[in-house]
Amino acid sequence: MNMKIMVCVKQVPDTEMIKVDPVTGSLIREGVPSIINPFDLNALEAALQLRGEYGGNVAAVCMGPPQAEEALRDCLAMGADSAVLISDRVFKDSDTLATSYVLSLAARQFGPFDLILCGKHSLDGETGQVGPQIAEFLGWNQVTYVSKMTRTEEGFVIDREMEGGIEKVMTRTPIVCTVTKTHYEPRKATMKGKLMAKKAHVETVDSKTLNGLDTGRIGLVGSPTSVAKSFVPPDGEPGTVIEEPTAVESAAKLIKLLTKAEAI
């Protein structure tokens, strides 16, 4: 049976390159390249593999500023069949609940889907909440931290990556899954895929064209949580420096100090 899969992607600043203004505590975004949240690429890879095995199609959906279209083109280059950009200034400052609400509306408008895949969390906010909350708004089941999905006659057998091991669960579609990296290292787009993606159509919706949108449930107003402040993690007090002429002497001194501090 063909499967219709929606993959949620987010454009994030590359955290490897990020710098924070030590005075204001805000991010210096300038010169920091935007990338697709790496875990979302794992989700896309999982979707492409499922499509490869069982047939169907994959839609990449992104809520973000107009520049996020680039992220969607990268998804198309990797093999997504279609792409939807949800972009409007009124979505600004949406928290996970408001974001999930918007994505759930998109899932209804561009579906019906059998599966919605998200990355296990985003590199910037690191919450991992959007997947489960989309599931709630759609009334679907959810499976988080998915490392592997195998289709069976009754549905899916899914591996969840847990502390200390793998939990195998069984469930039926429709499901929202949040995907980990382990088995879904993203493929590299082909050159032809890239060329095709440059010309492909990216569907764009805004607050007016997103069906059924209640504007009271989006943006800062519609978000139950907000960021009160952000700051750079403070440096600790400098500790005791041990720099004896030889390693043996340094070691002896350290052990003396640790013993005194009752750390050993």
């Binding site: 609940l97 690191e126 991992g128 909440q129 909350q133 599931a135 708004f137 847990m162 978000s223």
Partner: peptide, 23 residues
Amino acid sequence: ATSNGRDLAPRLAARLRTGSTAD
């Protein structure tokens, strides 16, 4: 913030239409 805790919290928050902070 275990795997299961992070499975439960956002869903519970969405059902109660309230806010959830992760980790």
